[in-house]
Simulated scan of single mutants.
Amino acid sequence: MTTSGSIFLAGASRGVGHQIARILATQNVPVLALIRSSAAQSDLQALNVETVVGDALNPTDVTNAMNGQISAIVSTIGGMPQDGQRADFLGNKHLIDAAANKGVSRFILVSSLGAGATKDAIPATAYEALASVLADKEKAEQYLMDSGLNYTIVRPGGLKSEPATGNGILTLDPHVAGSITRSDVATLVCRCLASDAAQNRVLSAFDKNMVYGTAAYREFVV
């Protein structure tokens, strides 16, 4: 992958974000990672990933973190609320605003199946349990699509912490869902970074051997 600057990665401390950092590091792609806690710094720095400690819920932290030349932003943030606020919408809003102000046009948002048109693709019980989180993720998706930035939204299904299978796929079809490992999601996101075809697309991600049900779909190749 050839870039004209660093990939600004929010959410690199763990999960999909950390796996993305690892993949980009092996490709010698410069990464600037925004992390909430310094606990993850040593591990990331061992990968030659530059880190800055800050909170995506604080717009000043986000603005100050985006130093130097940045070619694209990848956000995997979300999860448990802090001081009553969740980063799924507000944190991503701050990242999108900062990207627009800095003139960074490329933004990849890792969201979730169940958001937007994929609501009916996941079991009703799962949607009910995650309804408030998915509502915030959907707001972030819409804010990004309305921002004028060159976006890609990746909606992974049920996340697994097992080793990568290499069977992760993307589709434009909002009616299909399945599970996928975090490592395979990270691989798909990195492919999207290098793909013109993935620009201004909303894509579902799952393992082709972990599909829920028997629905047919067409794979989106990046």
Rank of each mutant, 00 (worst) to 15 (best):
M1E: 06
M1K: 11
S4N: 14
S6A: 11
I7C: 00
L9D: 00
R14T: 07
R14A: 04
R14E: 03
V16I: 13
H18N: 08
A21M: 03
R22D: 00
Q27M: 04
Q27R: 14
P30M: 06
V31I: 02
L32N: 01
A33M: 00
I35D: 00
S37A: 10
S37C: 08
A39Q: 14
A40N: 04
S42H: 07
Q45N: 04
Q45A: 01
A46T: 05
L47N: 00
N48W: 02
V49A: 00
E50C: 02
V52S: 05
V53T: 11
V53D: 05
N58Y: 08
D61V: 07
G68S: 09
Q69T: 13
I70L: 13
I70D: 04
I70H: 09
I70S: 08
S71G: 05
A72S: 10
S75M: 06
I77C: 02
G78M: 11
G78W: 12
G79N: 10
P81L: 10
P81W: 12
Q82E: 09
R86S: 12
H94S: 08
H94E: 05
A98F: 01
A98I: 07
A99T: 04
N101Y: 04
K102A: 08
K102F: 03
R106S: 02
R106K: 09
I108S: 03
L109E: 07
L109A: 11
V110P: 01
V110I: 14
S111N: 12
A115S: 15
A121S: 15
P123L: 10
A126V: 13
A126D: 09
Y127T: 05
L130C: 09
S132D: 14
V133R: 15
L134T: 09
L134G: 12
E138V: 13
K139C: 09
Q142I: 12
Q142K: 15
Q142M: 12
L144Q: 02
M145W: 08
L149K: 10
L149D: 06
L149I: 05
Y151E: 06
T152G: 03
I153F: 03
V154Q: 08
P156E: 06
P156T: 08
G158R: 14
L159D: 06
L159V: 07
S161L: 05
E162I: 10
A164F: 02
A164L: 06
L170V: 07
T171Q: 08
D173L: 14
H175D: 14
A177W: 15
I180E: 06
R182M: 07
S183K: 13
V185C: 05
A186P: 00
L188A: 05
V189C: 02
L193C: 02
A194F: 01
S195Y: 03
S195W: 05
D196S: 10
Q199C: 04
L203S: 11
L203F: 08
K208V: 11
N209G: 14
V211P: 12
R218Y: 04
E219W: 12
E219T: 15
